[in-house]
């Protein structure tokens, strides 16, 4: 898994590449926490290169949602492949974060 981040003021776009499962969800948690701690209260998670996410990855995502909400921002997701979107829907995450087609739309949603 690799996270590539672009910062712009208090907004950051984090593109997550690869698989997120129980073996590396801690790494995603750390990466997202670092981004938020650097001042990004509005976090866009770009999932175009995310191939897989299990409940361990959702846990890291929920932590980021809680932290950014507490900072007055939030998490928006974009370019989510259909099989990942199904996991988000089934687990109720589409209620916790909005899903957009493009990073631009996600950024504009804040």
């Amino acid at each position: 898994m690799k996270v590539t981040t672009t910062h712009s003021g208090n907004t950051a776009v984090a593109a997550v590449n690869g698989r997120v499962d129980s073996a590396n969800a801690k790494d995603l948690d750390q990466e997202l926490t670092d981004i938020i701690d650097q001042g990004a209260s509005r976090l866009v998670v770009d999932c175009s290169e995310l191939s897989y996410i299990s409940s361990a990855g959702l846990r890291a995502l929920l932590v980021a949602i809680k932290k950014t909400n507490a900072a007055g921002g939030g998490v928006a997701m974009c370019r989510v492949p259909p099989h990942i979107r199904e996991v988000l829907e089934v687990s109720g995450f589409t209620r916790l974060t909005k899903v957009f087609d493009t990073p631009g739309e996600a950024e504009a949603s804040f």
């Binding site: 299990s54 409940s55 361990a56 959702l58 846990r59 929920l62 932590v63 949602i65 809680k66 909400n69 996991v87 089934v90 687990s91 109720g92 209620r95 916790l96």
Partner: peptide
């Protein structure tokens, strides 16, 4: 069963694994 209607502040961390397995 996880309560999927809760907002983020009230959602517990974890507890989704077996629920996802049952669903899929």
């Amino acid at each position: 069963e996880p309560d999927l209607s809760l907002d983020a502040d009230h959602r517990p961390i974890g507890g989704l694994g077996i629920f996802l397995a049952k669903t899929f």
